[in-house]
Design a protein around this nucleic acid. Structure first.
Length: 210
DNA sequence: ACATTAAGTGATT
DNA sequence: AATCACTTAATGT
């Protein structure tokens, strides 16, 4: 586990900072489906993802969800950075997409290290920038792409972050993630299968043209 | 064998 | 693209 962490992060930070991260960070392992952050909750830790993947989603008052993007190893959560600056509540929800290992950094360290380490500052700014890009992409997807394209992007993203062309989900779950109805998803999936883009099985979708 | 859950489909708005 | 109503298929007990 620590070797994984080294592999993903060691080259980013100077030795001194890396040591400090290790001594202050708290190792945590979460199972698939486990909720890491909910809307309205205060954030006390900033997670560095060692392995696995996390799904970031928005939720409305009715509890209807909409997936914004996925983050994986080497990434961190941009929301925590915002929270750290303004002591605000989380505006997003984070759920483990699969079994995931994290290193939890107390948020007061974020600011401290910003002043102390140049590499940390770069890391924070860069991840913030990457998340911003992803958000814009998510907006484009929702605003300008039709359901057909959104679905295909979702499937490919999902296959990518799980490093598996076979995705294990029900049509209902996809419908929830994309905030539409199951019937619509079933129809679009069927169309994709006929086009030869995917193979359908109960609880499973195989993405072909990755 | 029966109940439950997932997926497919026509028709309507 | 959403919803309804219904069918069919797969899976669990």
């Amino acid at each position: 586990m620590l070797s994984d962490f080294k592999f993903n992060y060691a080259h980013l930070f100077e030795k001194e900072l890396f040591e400090e991260i290790l001594s202050v960070g708290e190792y945590k392992k979460v199972e698939e489906g486990e909720e890491l952050i909910n809307i309205g909750s205060y954030i006390k830790f900033m997670p560095l993802i060692i392995s696995g993947a996390i799904k970031i989603l928005r939720e409305d008052d009715n509890g209807d969800e909409l997936v914004l993007y996925f983050i994986e190893q080497g990434d961190t959560c941009a929301m925590t950075i915002t929270c750290c600056l303004g002591q605000t509540k989380s505006k997003i929800k984070a759920i483990a997409e699969r079994e995931t290992e994290l290193l939890m950094i107390p948020i007061h360290k974020i600011g401290e290290w910003m002043n102390k380490y140049q590499t940390w500052q770069n890391f924070i700014l860069q991840s913030y920038n990457e998340r911003m890009q992803e958000l814009l992409e998510a907006i484009d997807t929702i605003a300008f792409l039709n359901m057909h394209e959104r679905l295909l992007k979702y499937l490919k993203d999902k296959a990518m972050i799980n490093r598996d062309e076979v995705i294990t989900v029900t049509h209902k779950q996809i419908a929830n993630d994309l905030h539409t109805s199951r019937v619509v998803i079933s129809r679009l999936l069927k169309a994709l299968e006929i086009k030869g883009e995917i193979l359908l099985n109960r609880n499973q979708i195989k993405v072909l043209n990755l």
